[in-house]
Design a protein around this nucleic acid. Structure first.
Lengths: 117, 117
DNA sequence: ACTAGTGGTCTACGATCATCGAACTTGGGA
DNA sequence: TCCCAAGTTCGATGATCGTAGACCACTAGT
């Protein structure tokens, strides 16, 4: 897998975003990414699930247009496509951010504290 | 079926809303309801699919908190829970409304013209 | 070049979902 | 009362999804 598929901004469809965000695990990942505010290495997130499961969730988020994944050597870095999403579907990310989680998962808390250290 | 289940406002969860709205047929129904702006009889919508399928979609929308269904004799009337949704998840309905449909389905167009007549 | 280890994908499987036909329930007339 | 109209529920089927174990690619160190 050399090339990662990302939809262009105009190809992002609302129902695909809704589907991507309808899974609690993915919603949590996006919330964590928003909270951290910057590019994150793949392995700093999603430690609560199997690698393959997390990889699958990242693929769904990427192909729906929620996130962008950058390849750099052996690492992959994930970001939320905030500018494009705010331009095309204003308010969506605010919704995700403000509907704060009932409680942070251990993985998310670990990622948060690691990012602050 | 005497009693229809509706979640209370504080029980409405974002991931359930996202899931309910991630299906194109349901998204179309909600967009039509918003466009029409008032209570609609069940049979004025969803003529593009089987009765049982439409009934299932309405159930998903209702149980996720998107719509409210009122029973009146042999008829049921559906509304979008706009006030509650705007209070709890501000911007969500605007998002659905503004991300206009690529094209109105025949059923939706029929419902629209019927409502305008 | 070989090996070890890290980082990510492929494949299979169980669960959920969307769809529809058919049978059932209920209410409103003729 | 008898029948139709409006919706729901049930059963079945094909598709999609979430999960995780097994597998592969790449890098660093020796």
């Amino acid at each position: 897998m050399r090339v990662l598929l990302h939809p262009a901004e105009h190809e992002i469809r609302l129902e695909n975003l809704f589907h991507a965000l309808s899974d609690p695990a993915r919603l949590e990942v996006v919330r964590t990414l928003i909270a951290l505010g910057s590019e994150q290495s793949c392995n700093s997130l999603g430690e609560a699930m199997a690698k393959s499961t997390f990889s699958h969730h990242l693929k769904v988020l990427r192909e729906s247009g929620v996130t962008r994944t950058r390849v750099a050597g052996t690492h992959r870095y994930v970001t939320v496509r905030s500018e494009e999403l705010n331009r095309r579907f204003p308010g969506l990310l605010d919704l995700v951010e403000r509907s704060g989680p009932p409680a942070l998962t251990d993985a998310a808390a670990a990622a948060l504290s690691a990012a602050r250290a």
